[in-house]
Simulated scan of single mutants.
Amino acid sequence: MINNQERKAEYYKALIEKRSEYEGVFFVGVTSTGVFCRPTCPARKPKYNNCEFYETAQQALLASFRPCQRCRPLSHPNQVSDIVRLLVEAVEQNPEKRWKGQDFRALCIDESTARRQFKKRFGMTFVEYARSRRMGLALKSIRSGEKIINTQLASGYDSSSGFRDAFSRIMGAPPTRLDDSRILKAAWLDTQLGPMVAIADENELYLLEFVDRRGLEREVERLRKRMKAAIIPGQTLPIQSMERELTQYFEGTLTEFKTPLHLIGSPFQQGVWEQLRQIPPGEKQASIRALALTN
């Protein structure tokens, strides 16, 4: 998400004026409707406070926004192929779905062709596109920090089954079973390098990762199984500490992170990490020597 206030003001002005030269420069996510649009979308313009601006469609998808049906941000300025259009529509019909080979065959689509066309058109493969949509849906509860039932209703899942599926695929347990397990809490952190997800208990930080990282779902699943825990939206002191330290780090006022960490690894891995933690900031050669000593 673009956080610079001057740039947001510039983009909002371009949105209001429907300036075509900004096509491909930004996408706007509208929090009141849950959709993201092109700068020239013909729909009624949202209020400034309801707008979030993104440089790529993938960022908007990960932030839980779905493509606008009026301006079709994934089909402009150049018309996309029938394959791309069909797959985008299929994802919207079932955004929680994990795509496999037989799903492409059922649509009479070659999987490698879909991968190539999506990569050329959107800068990401179809699987990455579908995953971003699915991740955005499940991470919506983390991003908002709202109660699970409120997120379920806001997502439009009247029967709750769709939301439960999406949530459990990322966090490992359906909402109604969260009380049966050890609880870890997860929060969405906006940083200068992009949004991150932090997972922690009341004492230590277990995971800090970019939300668009490939394999994040598997990483969260491994953490959940190893700790025999459920993961729910929420804040803890370690998460708040890490958020403060990241802000200070990017402001140039912090060089040493002190948030307590829960490191999960073998004795050998623990030893390597401990050696690395002793290296002063910016000491590249020291880090190489430390790694050499442990190999």
Rank of each mutant, 00 (worst) to 15 (best):
7 R>H: 09
11 Y>M: 05
3 N>I: 11
21 E>W: 09
36 F>H: 11
63 A>H: 09
16 I>E: 11
18 K>F: 01
6 E>W: 03
55 E>Y: 11
42 P>D: 11
25 V>A: 07
41 C>D: 11
46 P>M: 02
61 L>V: 05
12 Y>E: 07
27 F>T: 04
24 G>Q: 08
34 G>K: 04
26 F>R: 10
26 F>D: 08
31 T>W: 04
42 P>A: 14
52 E>N: 13
33 T>I: 09
38 R>W: 00
14 A>G: 03
33 T>Y: 01
42 P>V: 08
20 S>I: 09
62 L>K: 05
48 Y>W: 10
60 A>F: 06
23 E>D: 14
60 A>V: 07
34 G>M: 05
43 A>V: 15
31 T>E: 10
4 N>I: 03
15 L>H: 05
48 Y>S: 09
56 T>Q: 03
27 F>P: 00
5 Q>G: 01
34 G>H: 06
30 V>H: 09
25 V>D: 10
51 C>M: 08
62 L>I: 11
65 F>W: 04
55 E>W: 09
53 F>S: 00
33 T>C: 00
27 F>K: 06
63 A>W: 03
62 L>P: 11
13 K>C: 05
64 S>N: 12
12 Y>S: 06
25 V>M: 07
45 K>H: 12
52 E>Y: 10
37 C>V: 13
14 A>Q: 12
5 Q>M: 10
49 N>W: 04
43 A>S: 14
38 R>A: 06
31 T>K: 15
23 E>C: 04
59 Q>M: 12
54 Y>K: 04
29 G>P: 01
29 G>L: 03
36 F>P: 00
51 C>N: 04
8 K>D: 08
9 A>L: 12
48 Y>Q: 12
17 E>N: 15
7 R>V: 11
34 G>C: 08
40 T>K: 08
36 F>I: 07
43 A>I: 10
28 V>G: 03
17 E>A: 15
20 S>D: 07
2 I>K: 06
60 A>K: 02
54 Y>I: 07
58 Q>A: 11
61 L>P: 03
23 E>M: 14
15 L>Q: 06
49 N>M: 11
58 Q>K: 14
59 Q>A: 15
2 I>Q: 03
64 S>L: 05
12 Y>R: 02
19 R>M: 13
40 T>H: 01
64 S>Y: 13
13 K>S: 12
5 Q>H: 12
33 T>Q: 00
14 A>M: 03
35 V>R: 14
13 K>F: 00
52 E>H: 10
21 E>D: 13
51 C>P: 00
55 E>G: 15
41 C>H: 06
